[in-house]
């Protein structure tokens, strides 16, 4: 059957159709002028660029439709640059399309594969050369070379060791200890138990001993969110309930999923939402995960008040804060 079926034959390249610019000298002249106009436009825009850079003050603002109040310096500088580049491009392409030869050219391809003779020749050469080195015969050299090359890869790995210290217990520690006062972030003011009404939140950090500067690493582990609810809203076991004080509950603000700041508290539903990956935690149930990718509740900080009525930590966090890691035990 297949012998009789013939495919539609290739009619070959279509005949070349002349452009107007090829046949009509007027059109050719016109195209030439158009290209020239485009290039001159580019030059004009370059002048605009330089003018804007030097003469338009950086604090000048103009009103533009759609965009609104816009910085004139930045706008005209950019438009100048864009115009100067675009019109060179348009000019060159227009030139190529209208005035350069537009007859399609056919070039032949060669197969990627080399000629059989060359290939044989190549294989032969490789064999010969390899033979002179005697790699096949000298297995002692081969093996010791393998060992050397294999091991040399370890050098960069070892050399990169001093990039940083070993983690040791650092992922498990924060600045919170027994009796650390909770202070506002920013402001570093201690928070009195009466400072928060029901429904209030406070972004807090541990009070650092005087003379200690707070680093970003500290904030990255210490940041805590303080929330005051009605005590009857809690659905906590007795231990966790004892970690709260008159309806005030504190959680690590560093998400147990990927470490974003979970500070988005919805007062009515009493849910905490992480804006990065939308893990949702129920504050009344010790930040139990009720939606999203987080697998663990936010660590709760046990709080109480000191003799002056200021909020303090009962103890440090009882588990590592932030995202999980291999050495984490729970």
């Amino acid at each position: 059957m297949s012998n009789e079926i013939s495919k539609f034959s290739d009619p070959g390249l279509p005949e070349h159709v002349h452009r107007k610019t090829d046949t009509d000298p007027k059109a050719e002249k016109r195209a030439e002028q158009q290209v020239a106009i485009l290039f001159v436009l580019s030059a004009f825009f370059t002048v605009l660029t330089i003018y804007s850079y030097i003469f338009i003050k950086t604090n000048t603002f103009i009103f533009l439709p759609i965009m609104g109040d816009t910085n004139a310096h930045q706008f005209f500088l950019g438009i100048g640059l864009a115009g100067s580049l675009l019109f060179i491009g348009f000019g060159a392409v227009h030139w190529a399309k209208q005035l350069m030869p537009d007859t399609e050219v056919v070039a032949m391809r060669h197969e990627m594969r080399s000629e059989d003779v060359d290939r044989e020749d190549f294989v032969q050469t490789v064999k010969e050369r390899a033979g002179t080195a005697g790699l096949g015969r000298r297995s002692l050299i081969k093996r010791s070379l393998g060992l050397a090359v294999g091991l040399i890869g370890l050098t960069p790995l070892v050399m990169l060791r001093d990039l940083g210290p070993l983690p040791r217990k650092q992922l498990n520690t924060t600045s919170w200890t027994k009796g650390t006062r909770l202070v506002t972030d920013p402001g570093n003011r201690p928070i009195h138990v009466n400072d928060l009404e029901v429904g209030a939140v406070a972004q807090v950090l541990p009070e650092l001993p005087t003379g200690t500067e707070r680093t970003l690493e500290n904030i990255g582990t210490d940041a805590v969110l303080l929330i005051r609810l009605r005590p009857e809203d809690f659905q906590l076991d007795s231990e966790r309930l004892s970690w709260t004080h008159e309806g005030i509950i504190a959680f690590s603000k560093i998400c147990s999923h990927m470490g974003c700041a979970v500070a988005l508290y919805e007062q009515q539903t009493k849910h905490l939402l992480c804006p990065c990956h939308q893990s949702t935690f129920d504050v009344t149930r010790a930040a139990k995960v009720i939606f999203g990718p987080a697998a663990r509740p936010l660590p709760q900080l046990a709080i109480t008040v000191d003799s002056q009525g200021y909020l303090v930590a009962q103890q440090g966090f009882t588990e590592p804060i932030g995202p999980s890691f291999w050495e984490r035990s729970s």
Binding site: G68, T70, T184, I191, D195, V198, A200, V201, I227
Partner: peptide
């Protein structure tokens, strides 16, 4: 949530408003 006056003082609240108003009227830079 509520932001108590002791946590964010009235002066700080005014600063927040000032920043919001600055952001609102900030032209497109």
């Amino acid at each position: 949530p509520v932001f108590s006056d002791k946590v964010i003082t009235p002066a700080e609240k005014l600063s927040i408003i000032k920043w919001i108003k600055a952001a609102e009227s900030e032209p497109n830079l």
